[in-house]
Computed example of a mutant assay.
Amino acid sequence: MKRKNYKQVKLPNGKKIFCLNQHEVQVVYQEVKTYLKNGIELHEGDTVFDVGANIGLFTLLVDNLCNGHINVYAFEPIPEIFEVLHANITCLASKNLKSFAYGLSNQSKTATFSYYSRATIVSQVYPGFSKEERNQLKEKMLGNLQELPLAVSWIRWLPSFFRPFILDKKLAIGFQAKQVNCQLKTLSDVIREHNIQQIDLLKVDVEKSELDVLLGLDKDDWRKIKQIVVEAHNFESRLEKIIDLLKQNGLTEIVIEQEPILKGSDISIVYAFQHQDR
């Protein structure tokens, strides 16, 4: 496999992985740990769907936690990111970890994504970051200086009048997108194709498309989902719609949490559980 588009870095736990942007690794390494809070449990032999896998840090985390005895289906639609995901999974040489070069949605189709090569974790199928959204992000970062990722934490030491200017420059560079056509399927398509009987944890981090992913579940397949963790963006009142959809389909025990760096944003983490399993 070609490796000219990515590099190898060492994680805080000493393990080496491939990545596209080293500055993103520290952010995502901390972020994926938040998906295993508030009662989320995994055991050896469980099945996990990692939807919006990016380079695979969550997949690698749960594989390590379960000593390699866990089944993970990792989905990443953007080809350049998928190449790195596949490389990271291949290095583990585990038949229990599977990567798929497509995303999940409410129908099978081809869709155009905005791919941010310098900020891959915010690549998305919905319209990309407007100037207003960048300004909102800048204000949140300026208001949470102690929570900034290591890659930009030095900004807190700059004079206060200079910080907005520097962040403007950083965000303008980071949010330059190119359009990429990607394949999408539905969750129920995948469940049928791979004869999945149970999903012990469905993790969804898909930058505004989380409701679309959940709408791709047929009614009879909801009972197969035991736990869900979703990074939910509340645009178009989608957080409320997600909560309603979860409750309607038996995931009635719900915790909603917002990480410190996300305070004041429209992004929350939703943890949901089938009632009979609690």
Rank of each mutant, 00 (worst) to 15 (best):
E236H: 10
G68D: 06
P79N: 04
D266C: 07
S160D: 14
L251C: 12
L148W: 13
S117L: 04
S94C: 09
S94E: 09
Y102T: 02
F161R: 15
P79T: 03
V204W: 07
R223V: 11
V84N: 06
G56Q: 04
F82P: 04
L142T: 02
A93G: 01
I267L: 13
D189C: 07
V51S: 02
K226R: 15
Q227L: 01
Q146G: 01
H69A: 07
S188V: 03
D200G: 10
F273W: 03
T120A: 10
I70L: 03
D221C: 03
Y29D: 12
L142Q: 06
K178P: 06
K224N: 11
G250K: 08
Q124E: 08
K226V: 04
V204R: 09
N181W: 07
L184I: 08
T34M: 02
I269G: 05
E133S: 12
D205R: 13
A151N: 09
G45I: 03
K140E: 00
D221N: 14
F129A: 04
Q183K: 12
F165V: 08
Q176A: 03
K138A: 03
P159W: 12
T90S: 15
W154P: 08
T252F: 03
I242Y: 02
N38R: 13
Q248A: 09
Y6V: 02
V190F: 12
N234P: 10
E147M: 03
L65T: 00
L65C: 00
L137E: 04
C19S: 14
D50W: 09
L148I: 09
I155L: 15
E253Y: 14
Q22H: 12
I191W: 01
Q30E: 12
S268V: 12
N249H: 14
N181P: 13
